[in-house]
């Protein structure tokens, strides 16, 4: 887990998107959430809107939204596939995304329909570079 500054935790075993979603790959499925950097930039998260189980998404398409006090951010699917499971407690305890973005704050579990898409995701080191750069701005 690199980075000690607030909002800079980037676990090494995950894959990332430029839009600050993360993906944990387990047996052909991907668990998806938003990164520590994203939750930190958004501030107090008040609501998460998730899709329904069984819905299909193309990589890069919006699958939900995260509301913080003053803004709303869209969630982009890192990979294509069917939503197998959602973190159904999340809409009512959205603070979990702030408190534990990589575990309790997970959002959806997707059945990966095209393994090749994983190659387009960023490994931890690259994502860390990206957010370090954005942080300097």
């Amino acid at each position: 887990m690199a980075g000690k500054e607030p909002g800079m935790k980037v676990p090494e075993d995950l894959l990332y998107t430029k839009n600050h979603e993360w993906c944990r790959i387990e047996d052909g499925t991907a668990v998806v959430g938003i990164t520590d950097y994203a939750q930190h930039s958004l501030g107090d998260i008040t609501y998460v809107e998730l899709p329904e189980e069984g819905q299909m998404f193309q990589a890069g398409k919006v699958f939900g939204t995260v509301d913080s006090l003053k803004t709303v951010a869209e969630l982009f699917a890192p990979v294509s596939g069917e939503v197998l499971e959602i973190n159904s407690g999340l809409p009512n305890s959205a603070e979990l995304v702030n408190e534990d973005p990589y575990n309790d704050g997970w959002m959806i579990k997707v059945e990966i329909s095209d393994e090749k898409e994983l190659e387009l995701l960023l490994p931890a080191a690259e994502y860390l570079k990206l957010v370090s750069k954005q942080n300097k701005k």
């Binding site: 008040t46 609501y47 939204t65 509301d67 803004t71 709303v72």
Partner: peptide, 12 residues
């Protein structure tokens, strides 16, 4: 609950 509103959520 202003994030429902147009000045934040815009086209959504």
């Amino acid at each position: 609950f202003a994030t429902r509103e147009q000045f934040i959520r815009r086209d959504k």
